[in-house]
Every structure is written in C-alpha cells, then in structure tokens.
C-alpha cells in the first residue's frame, strides 16, 4: 500500500470525498513542550512561529492532512536562541522516551520507545559528529522512528498530540525534563495533503 493509497483509503472511510482532489505534497509539523507537561503539539497555538512550531493549532484545516511516516524527538536550548540539540547528548544513551500518538480520542501509537542510543531501523545514516581531535568525535544517534508498513493518517480538523515520558533504562526512574533549560520537541514527517481550490476561487 503506497502513502497515497492509504490516504485515499482512510479518506473514503471517513467520508472525505473531496480529499482526493487536493494537492499532494511532502510536509512536517513540529512543536516543543515548553510547559514540561509531557504533551507536545497540544499547546502549539501559544508558541512562536517558526522558532518553536510551524503550527497555529494542533489540527489541520479543511481538506488538509498528513500521513505520518516518521517521528523524531529532539531538544531545544531555550537559553541559547532555541538551538536544536540531540536527545542523547543531553539525557544520555540510557534515556528512553516512551510516547503515545493520540489522534482525536484514539491512541494510534502505544507506549512506543525512542531510545537515547538510537532507535531500530535508523542506523544506516546516523549522524557522526566529527570534531578535532578525533578522540573527541562522537556519534549522534537518531532518536527517530520510521513507521513500518503504512503510515498513520492525521485527518483534517481532528486534534492530535504526542504524550511522552523520559526514563532511565538502567535504573527505571523517570528523568525530569524541567531541571534543564531545554524543552523536548517532536516532529512528524510524511506525505502531506494541502488545500487546493482548483477552480473554486
């Protein structure tokens, strides 16, 4: 099943008859948890655009959608101009983010781990940070998931958010996120459907 097939299948099930006439594209949405509430995207409407998010609310407009094919986590240094950082560099290799993706009132990804030391199926292109001298170089693992099989469609005008917690896998303890001047962020990447007026206007 291709991404387009999946979008049309779900649109048909939901009775979204005009989605097939819209503009297919590629897109990503991102946001950060500035409140350390354990939720990402639910407070996007309060966040500055584009330094913290590229959304105005955590739902798409009429006839817009996103088939999520990849989910990644990062952190933002909120004391240093919201610079992007790697989860492993801050929370360590033993950290694990356990998250749910909730669309509407449905949990579509369940207790899914994103390991600090890298997540399955991400190692072909892991970032290697080359510093001088070589002895200080390091690997920046991908704290990311590529969805297997078909992606997950976020339909138009339905709210979504990511719920997460960070744990230490060695001790099992929860790692507090509010002790550092950093916020956990997340992006959802995939095939996008954009509103296309065709000849309407």
């Amino acid at each position: 099943m291709t991404a387009q097939d999946k979008i049309l299948y779900v649109a048909n099930k939901l009775g979204l008859t005009s989605l097939k006439d819209m503009q297919a594209s590629t897109g990503a949405v991102y946001d950060v948890d500035t409140d350390h509430s354990g939720q990402i995207f639910s407070s996007a409407s309060r966040h500055q655009n584009p330094s913290l998010t590229n959304l105005t609310q955590n739902q798409f407009e009429v006839n817009e959608a996103l088939l999520v094919e990849s989910i990644a986590f990062y952190n933002l240094d909120n004391e240093d101009g919201n610079q992007l950082g790697n989860i492993q560099n801050v929370y360590g290799s033993q950290a694990v983010i356990v998250f749910d993706l909730i669309i509407g009132n449905k949990r579509t990804m369940k207790s899914t781990p994103v390991f600090g030391s890298g997540t399955p199926f991400t190692f072909a292109t892991s970032g290697i940070k080359n510093l001088a001298p070589a002895a200080t170089s390091q690997i920046n693992p991908r704290n990311q998931i590529f969805l297997e099989g078909a992606g997950i469609l976020i339909p138009p005008q339905v709210q979504w958010y990511v719920e997460y917690q960070i744990f230490n896998m060695v001790t099992g303890a929860v790692i507090p996120t509010n002790e550092l001047a950093r916020n956990i962020g997340c992006y959802l990447f995939g095939t996008r459907v954009l509103l296309n007026f065709n000849t309407s206007i």
Partner: peptide, 16 residues
C-alpha cells in the same frame, strides 16, 4: 569514533 565513551558521548552503535 575513538576516545572515551560517556553516557552523554556515544562512540559506537547498538547491535541491530
């Protein structure tokens, strides 16, 4: 990458 690994500095990949 060589050098000494720490919990914040990863020098190798997991086994997959």
């Amino acid at each position: 990458t060589g050098g000494v690994a720490t919990f914040e500095r990863q020098t190798e990949f997991p086994c997959e």
